[in-house]
Simulated assay, not measured.
Amino acid sequence: MGHLNRACGLLFTSVCGLLLCSALHGAAWAAHPRTFELYMAEAPPLTMAGEAGQQGILGDAARQAMVLAGYHTTVSVLPWLRAQRTVQQGQDMLIVPLSRTPDREASYTWIAPIMSMDRAFFSLDKRVDSFAEARRTYHRIAVGLGSAQERKLQDEGFDASQIYPLRIGENPAQMLLLGRVDAWFNGVPESQYIWRQVSERQLLMSPVLMTTDLYLACSKSCSPHMVLGLRKAVQTLHRDGSIKKLLERYLTAPL
């Protein structure tokens, strides 16, 4: 019986020690806020290089969530494929705007959705109503390199010769105007925002053919403490209307 009492005592002491360490760790975290890296693509009006408060809908939302959760942030705007690889291979690195698709599910820690994104085909003279019609109609389709829409075209059976992946700095709207591509498969608000800057010609749009939520995500190896804090912060930004205000500001304001 004495051995049992001593074993129970040791177990109690160990549990208490773990609880105390956890509490001290949480207190230290709160007293000394950490700085985390946030990776984004140049994809206005969703994310863009600029001063705080001028980094696009999801860039601003992510920064607001970080402040609300008590963290500091440094922002890096990189080509989208490089940004994804950097975050996947790193630890405690954040990324926006990331569609939560089956092929990405196991590569990230998904914190919270910030907004929903509709995708469609855009062209100047040939409107389509389906992926099947687009496969028959368009010879060359501009699409973001490493994007969810590039993967969608692959999954829908488009030939590799039909898919023209665009790197950072290549302007799909200008390519459409110059006739270098027949169509552009992209997010609706992003495409309309960019088109307003380059032309007054009518842009033909298909029905919405793809919709995903755009997430604030983290490396697969990510602090549960940070994930919980940021998830609550994003939920707060939805509840208090902050994200709705960002959508209105970026999508309706004059350029």
Rank of each mutant, 00 (worst) to 15 (best):
D182V: 05
T86R: 02
D129E: 15
R136Q: 12
K244C: 03
L230R: 07
Y250H: 07
L124T: 13
E150H: 11
W184G: 03
L209A: 04
A65Y: 12
T236L: 04
A52N: 10
G70F: 02
A134C: 06
D103S: 01
G157Q: 00
R119K: 12
T252A: 03
D182F: 00
M205F: 10
F185M: 00
T13C: 11
G146N: 04
L251N: 15
Y71N: 07
S22P: 04
Q54T: 07
P165F: 05
A233S: 07
K232Q: 11
R85A: 10
V227T: 06
A142R: 00
L204A: 04
I141N: 04
K152A: 02
L246T: 13
A28Q: 10
A183I: 08
S219N: 05
S199A: 14
E37N: 07
H225L: 10
V15Q: 02
A43K: 09
A83G: 07
A173F: 10
A61Y: 12
A43M: 09
L46A: 15
G70C: 04
P224M: 09
H25S: 13
W184T: 03
K126V: 01
M48G: 05
S99G: 15
G187T: 07
G56M: 04
I163F: 02
K152N: 10
V181R: 01
G169H: 02
E51R: 14
L98W: 03
T211Q: 15
S219C: 02
S221E: 14
F12G: 05
A217C: 02
A65E: 09
L251P: 13
A41C: 04
Y215G: 01
M40C: 13
A52W: 12
D125R: 10
M66E: 06
G187F: 07
R6F: 09
A132Y: 06
D159N: 15
R249Q: 15
F36D: 00
C222R: 12
W195C: 13
T109F: 08
L228K: 13
K245W: 10
M117E: 14
E170C: 06
Y215M: 00
Q149D: 13
T137H: 08
Q202K: 15
T109M: 06
A183T: 02
Y215K: 01
G179A: 04
A31H: 03
S161G: 08
S116M: 12
